[in-house]
Computed example of a mutant assay.
Amino acid sequence: MTTSSSRLIPVQQLERIFNPIEQATGLANEFYTDQRYFELERDEVLGKTWACVGFASDLVKNGSVKPIDFMGLPLLLMRNREGLVQVFHNVCSHRGMKLVQEEGEVQGVIRCPYHSWTYDLNGKLRGTPHVGGIDNHKDERFACEKHGLKPLRSSIWMDMVFINLSGDAQPLEEMLAPLTARWSQFLGDEGMSLLRRRPGQDATTLDINCNWKLAVENYCEAYHLPWVHPSLNSYSRLEDHYNIMFDERFAGQGSHAYNLSDVAGTHLPKFPSWPQDRLRNAEYVAFFPNVLLGIQADHAFAMQLEPVAPGRTLEHLRVFYVGDEALSDEYAACRNAVLESWKVVFAEDISSVEGMQKGRLSPGYTGGVFSPVMDVPTHFFHQWAARQLLEITPSA
């Protein structure tokens, strides 16, 4: 007997993705357009690894809560009274009512709007009015300590809040170790600890009519640069870029000629360990499944891809600067120039990824082909996705 999930998997089509790149085809249209595949990816692809669901610094104060929708699952980010950020299922343990509708600061407890059960900011069930009958708010047959909010396995890195739905992925720090080792050549021992951002600022969100995978694919390659990003290509040209792929879950591009500081006239503090002879180096790496990262000598950024529907994705961008000094008023114009430049770059990609999404409705497209040179990181991502899907095995 097979599971409904396994019956969805077109094994032969996925296996063709592993052909040599000049003979390979990509993921079929259904993986970009079909709700069934969208839910399958939530449970069997994003859910089996670490997926980013938000940013810790968006929970500005202790006591802050933020409801999120993870591909149809109602979740809740919470910062408790001591400042610890945790993730819970956003449903009351009693009758499954969605608890929190809007983000904000909780002054006392979280109260269910249905029967007024209450929870503290550690998820513990604190109040059960009339649970044992009128004016009997406790009942020896009912153990409150067993019915708190249901937590998810979560972890934070570079301000990003990650969850692992399945609960059995290897530790996030281990997964990220190859990336942190690679970037130690730029960041030194300080690593990401020097990154700073102002809560509520240095941020933007784009609402895009495309599947989340198209955003990853577009980010991984520089091939489109001359035609889609003419301004960026004027100082960081296609020929200045190189492909990046490693450890099965990282792919992207790097530049030998990133030069925004001169182009925009910025003079932000730089990473103290960044090699002086490589100040124009920059790297842009996707951490599969849904995080896009960029580092330059004077700032970094992280983008969370929030899959909303098969054909809709929210891109949440956060920009980080180097050290507390970089957040001072002296650098306000520089920070604004950096953020605006990235807004322009990512906005320029919208027509491309939305155009590809529309093209996925055509029976004339059956997965496409790859340039043996320019599309290597994109092919790498397709192989990663296909590998996750092929691991869904029938049950006996």
Rank of each mutant, 00 (worst) to 15 (best):
V60C: 00
I244R: 06
K270L: 14
I9R: 02
W384E: 09
F246Y: 11
A309G: 11
D202Q: 11
R278Q: 15
H224V: 10
T128H: 14
H137I: 01
Y223E: 09
F381P: 10
M245S: 08
V100K: 00
A203V: 10
V376H: 08
E103S: 11
G252K: 02
N259E: 12
H137Y: 04
W157Y: 12
P129C: 05
R237F: 02
V131Q: 11
F380R: 05
V109T: 13
E391T: 03
R196Y: 09
D159S: 04
Y258R: 07
V161W: 00
L46E: 11
Y37C: 02
R312V: 06
L260V: 10
F31V: 08
K270P: 01
L232A: 13
D298F: 06
V131W: 08
Y235I: 05
E306K: 10
V11R: 07
S341Q: 11
T266D: 11
K343H: 05
K48G: 04
E221N: 10
D58K: 00
C92G: 07
W212L: 05
K146N: 15
R387L: 12
P289H: 02
A385R: 00
A24F: 06
P289L: 05
E145G: 13
V109M: 13
A300V: 01
I110G: 07
D202G: 02
S362H: 10
L260D: 06
N19H: 14
I392N: 03
N259D: 15
Y284S: 15
D240H: 14
Y32S: 05
L149P: 12
D58R: 08
P269T: 02
S351D: 09
R360G: 01
E190F: 09
A177W: 06
S328H: 01
V85E: 00
F70E: 07
L327F: 12
L339A: 13
E221T: 04
H382I: 07
E248A: 08
G311L: 04
V322P: 02
S6N: 14
P377W: 02
A181K: 12
N290V: 00
H89S: 05
N233P: 15
F250C: 04
K358Q: 15
Q86R: 10
E39V: 00
S341H: 11
L214N: 11
C334F: 05
L268C: 04
E41K: 06
D202N: 13
V228W: 05
D277W: 10
P363K: 13
K66M: 14
L214Q: 07
Y223R: 13
F55Q: 14
E348A: 09
A326P: 03
A56K: 06
N122V: 05
K343F: 00
A286S: 15
T49H: 09
M245N: 03
I392S: 09
S57G: 03
V11Q: 13
W227I: 11
A333Y: 01
F380Q: 07
V161Q: 00
W274G: 12
G355R: 14
W183A: 05
E330I: 06
S4Y: 04
R7W: 01
